[in-house]
């Protein structure tokens, strides 16, 4: 299986090869991967790739899934236009 053709995060175009390289460099948590590669930070907010990222971390570092922390979740669950937020704030 060629990891450069395996898409993990469709939103930010992150492949399995990208993840494996980062693992080799020592990055081992979802939070780190997110900051460096934007994996899970697109429109789906890790709802598609999240479980695969968790699984790949568990596999590479030989940990049970229970011990692989999921990434932090913050509002919003999807993109919201700044214009929309401003209009709401103006009304308030």
């Amino acid at each position: 299986m060629d990891p450069k053709n395996v898409i993990i995060c469709r939103c930010s175009d992150v492949t399995l090869e990208d993840l494996l390289e980062l693992f080799k460099e020592g990055y081992s948590t979802f939070e780190e991967l997110k900051r460096i590669k934007r994996v899970g930070m697109g429109p789906c907010q890790a709802n598609t790739c999240g479980k695969m990222v968790q699984w790949e971390i568990a596999k590479y570092f030989n940990k049970p899934l229970e011990e692989v922390p999921f990434h932090n979740m913050r509002p919003f669950t999807m993109g919201v236009k700044l214009k929309s937020i401003k209009e709401q704030a103006d009304e308030e």
């Binding site: 060629d2 479980k51 695969m52 236009k81 214009k83 709401q88």
Partner: peptide
């Protein structure tokens, strides 16, 4: 967010019944 309108609601009680998302699979292409 409804279409492009953004608004906030204050609720006494909230029931989150948001369901689930589908898992995916890593394979080539």
């Amino acid at each position: 967010v409804k279409h492009d309108e953004y608004f906030k609601i204050q609720a006494d009680y909230i029931l989150v019944a948001s369901g689930a998302s589908e898992k995916s699979l890593p394979f080539e292409n």
